[in-house]
Amino acid sequence: MNRLAKKIVPHIILTVFSLIILMPLVWIVRVSLTDKLTAYKIPPEIGTLGLNNYVDIFERFPFVTWFANSFIIAIVSTAIALPLATAMAYSFARLNTGGALLRLGVLASQMLPPIILVLPLFGVFLFVGLTQSRVSLIVAHLSISLPFLSWMLVSFFEGDMARLEEAARVDGASRWQAFLLVAVPVAAPGILAAGLLGFILSWNEFLFVLVLSGPGTQTLPVGLASLETHAGVEIAPLAAATVVSLLPVFALLPFLRKHLIKGLSLGALK
Score class of each variant (00 low, 15 high):
residue 3 R to K: 08
residue 3 R to E: 07
residue 3 R to P: 12
residue 5 A to S: 09
residue 10 P to M: 04
residue 12 I to S: 13
residue 16 V to L: 15
residue 17 F to Q: 05
residue 18 S to P: 02
residue 20 I to N: 02
residue 21 I to F: 00
residue 26 V to R: 03
residue 29 V to L: 12
residue 32 S to V: 11
residue 33 L to C: 00
residue 34 T to S: 12
residue 35 D to T: 13
residue 35 D to W: 02
residue 38 T to Y: 04
residue 41 K to C: 05
residue 43 P to E: 01
residue 46 I to D: 05
residue 46 I to L: 01
residue 55 V to L: 15
residue 58 F to L: 07
residue 58 F to R: 01
residue 61 F to R: 08
residue 61 F to V: 10
residue 62 P to H: 03
residue 63 F to R: 04
residue 64 V to Q: 05
residue 66 W to I: 02
residue 69 N to W: 05
residue 70 S to K: 04
residue 73 I to Y: 08
residue 74 A to E: 05
residue 75 I to Q: 07
residue 77 S to T: 01
residue 78 T to L: 01
residue 87 A to P: 09
residue 87 A to Q: 14
residue 91 S to L: 08
residue 91 S to G: 14
residue 92 F to G: 07
residue 92 F to V: 05
residue 93 A to H: 15
residue 94 R to L: 02
residue 96 N to G: 12
residue 102 L to S: 08
residue 105 G to K: 05
residue 106 V to G: 11
residue 109 S to P: 07
residue 115 I to V: 13
residue 116 I to D: 04
residue 118 V to L: 14
residue 125 F to P: 08
residue 127 F to G: 04
residue 128 V to M: 09
residue 128 V to A: 07
residue 131 T to Q: 05
residue 131 T to K: 03
residue 131 T to A: 01
residue 132 Q to F: 04
residue 133 S to N: 11
residue 134 R to T: 00
residue 136 S to N: 05
residue 136 S to G: 10
residue 139 V to T: 02
residue 139 V to G: 02
residue 141 H to C: 01
residue 142 L to A: 02
residue 142 L to Y: 03
residue 145 S to A: 12
residue 145 S to I: 11
residue 148 F to H: 07
residue 152 M to R: 04
residue 154 V to R: 12
residue 155 S to V: 00
residue 155 S to D: 14
residue 158 E to V: 00
residue 163 R to I: 00
residue 164 L to R: 04
residue 165 E to F: 06
residue 176 W to R: 11
residue 176 W to S: 07
residue 179 F to Q: 03
residue 182 V to R: 15
residue 185 P to G: 03
residue 187 A to L: 08
residue 188 A to W: 14
residue 189 P to H: 11
residue 193 A to Q: 04
residue 201 L to R: 10
residue 204 N to I: 00
residue 204 N to E: 12
residue 205 E to G: 01
residue 205 E to L: 00
residue 215 P to R: 00
residue 216 G to F: 13
residue 218 Q to N: 14
residue 218 Q to D: 12
residue 223 G to C: 07
residue 225 A to Y: 15
residue 229 T to V: 15
residue 238 L to S: 04
residue 244 V to P: 04
residue 245 S to K: 02
residue 248 P to V: 01
residue 252 L to N: 03
residue 252 L to R: 01
residue 257 R to N: 11
residue 257 R to I: 03
residue 258 K to V: 06
residue 270 K to A: 13
